Amino acid sequence: MADNPCTRCGACCASFRVDFAVEELEGRGGSVPEGLTVELNHFTCRMRGTDHASPRCAALVGTVGVQAHCGIYEWRPSPCREFGLRAPLGLGDEACTRARARHGLAPLPG
């Protein structure tokens, strides 16, 4: 895991909206801390900060592309767990490449 650039890049955490089912919230049997989310309706919530014009998840710690990581990695919601799973080793898929480009970062070798 130490060699995995996904655990130190942060571009995806500062590029996309993150919506997920309310059942993933800590208070509803899941693991995502409620204080980092906004409930949208009875079924869906969103990670705070991900719906801003310049998105940045409230759980992101550090500087994107330099040294950044998810402050709730073990408790992150399903969209974050599933991000990049379509690419070999989970690295450098199309969404990752778009997120990195948004922050002036080169694509990961894939």
Rank of each mutant, 00 (worst) to 15 (best):
A2V: 05
D3A: 13
D3I: 04
D3H: 04
N4T: 05
C6S: 04
C6K: 00
T7M: 04
G10F: 03
G10A: 10
G10L: 02
C12Y: 01
C13A: 03
A14Q: 04
A14C: 11
S15Y: 04
S15H: 10
F16C: 04
F16L: 07
F16H: 09
R17L: 11
V18K: 12
V18P: 11
D19S: 09
F20K: 13
F20G: 12
F20N: 14
F20V: 13
V22M: 13
V22I: 15
V22S: 08
E23C: 11
E23T: 15
E24Q: 15
L25P: 06
E26N: 12
G27N: 13
G27D: 14
G30Y: 09
S31E: 14
S31D: 15
V32S: 11
V32M: 10
V32E: 09
E34T: 11
G35W: 09
L36A: 07
T37E: 08
T37R: 15
L40T: 09
L40G: 06
N41E: 03
F43C: 11
T44D: 14
R46V: 13
R46N: 10
M47C: 14
R48F: 01
T50Y: 11
T50M: 13
H52L: 14
H52R: 15
A53Y: 11
S54E: 15
R56I: 04
C57A: 10
A58I: 06
V61W: 07
V61Y: 03
V61D: 01
G62L: 02
G62K: 07
V64A: 00
V64P: 00
V64F: 02
G65D: 03
V66P: 00
Q67W: 09
A68T: 01
H69R: 12
H69W: 13
C70I: 01
G71E: 06
G71H: 04
I72V: 13
Y73S: 01
Y73H: 08
E74T: 05
E74I: 02
E74K: 09
W75S: 11
R76T: 02
R76M: 02
P79A: 06
R81M: 10
E82Q: 12
E82N: 12
E82L: 14
F83Y: 15
G84F: 00
G84P: 01
L85V: 13
R86L: 05
A87H: 00
G90R: 01
L91K: 00
L91V: 04
L91A: 00
G92R: 06
E94S: 10
E94I: 08
A95Y: 11
C96F: 03
T97G: 01
T97M: 02
R98E: 10
A101P: 06
R102F: 01
R102G: 15
G104D: 02
G104A: 07
L105H: 06
P109W: 05
G110C: 05
